[in-house]
Design a protein around this nucleic acid. Structure first.
Lengths: 124, 124
DNA sequence: GTGCAGTAGTTGATCAGATACAGTACTTGC
DNA sequence: GCAAGTACTGTATCTGATCAACTACTGCAC
């Protein structure tokens, strides 16, 4: 964060730092997959669109997250129908993934409360 | 994050990952200093106590943050009265620091909203 | 029919923040 | 005297995010 905090300088309208979501990427991906299987690029677009486009998790970041999630057994990957040409790798959340997701949501709620209290923010 | 996500394994009661606050440390420190000057260890204790003790930002993390904030001109450091023995380095927030703090709080609110919507959390 | 934009996936190098670990130095209580 | 707590600092390492590049296919405009 604070890449732009040259304090007196800096060009004002900084599209808010993506670093602020750091650590939550895995949970966000699990959250998207919780409803239905999706392929990588689709998840990328879903996240980008869900935030009105002013925010995106970079592709490289997401593909790294997929690798991590597969390695940890939280999601499973399988290739989609390639007859149409463009290959698509789909991801499916596992039971272990759902369990971790629930725990991470709880952790997020706790984190949110912690930061809010440290910044003296009560409601929105 | 997810250091403990051995999925099927892992010992359950993981005190929530400090990594989740990653990127917010500077803002939290500025938030503490916004009211009055404090010395390093005092800020550490304030954060630790404010979260009921189940969470802490490690000393090394905070001292690294202080260095960063001073370097960026967001806080100023000065040595306290050493006649009493124990040396204490106090930190004072600058005008630039207050400006960055306000911007970062806005960024945090936006981030919070973004994650909430991605995780389908409406209220608390 | 070539080039370009968009879709889709992937990798290697690098950066920065958080942490572990280790250390210095002083104070207080036993 | 010595252990525990206060207070500050530096170095090394880990990890997640990002950049920059790459492969490969599709569809469209020129």
């Amino acid at each position: 964060m604070q890449k732009e905090s040259g304090a007196t300088s800096d060009g004002g309208a900084d599209a808010f730092a993506a670093d602020l979501l750091r650590g939550h990427t895995d949970t966000i991906v699990l959250g998207v997959l919780r409803r239905e299987d999706r392929y990588g690029f689709e998840i990328y677009k879903a996240i980008r669109d869900a935030t009105g486009g002013d925010y995106e998790i970079k592709e490289a970041t997401l593909y790294a997250a997929y690798r991590r999630l597969v390695k940890d057994g939280l999601v499973e990957a399988y290739w989609g129908d390639e007859s149409q040409g463009g290959r698509r790798k789909y991801y499916r959340i596992t039971d272990a993934g759902r369990a971790v997701y629930r725990r991470n949501v709880d952790a997020w709620v706790a984190t949110r409360r912690t930061i809010d209290s440290l910044l003296d923010l009560k409601g929105s």
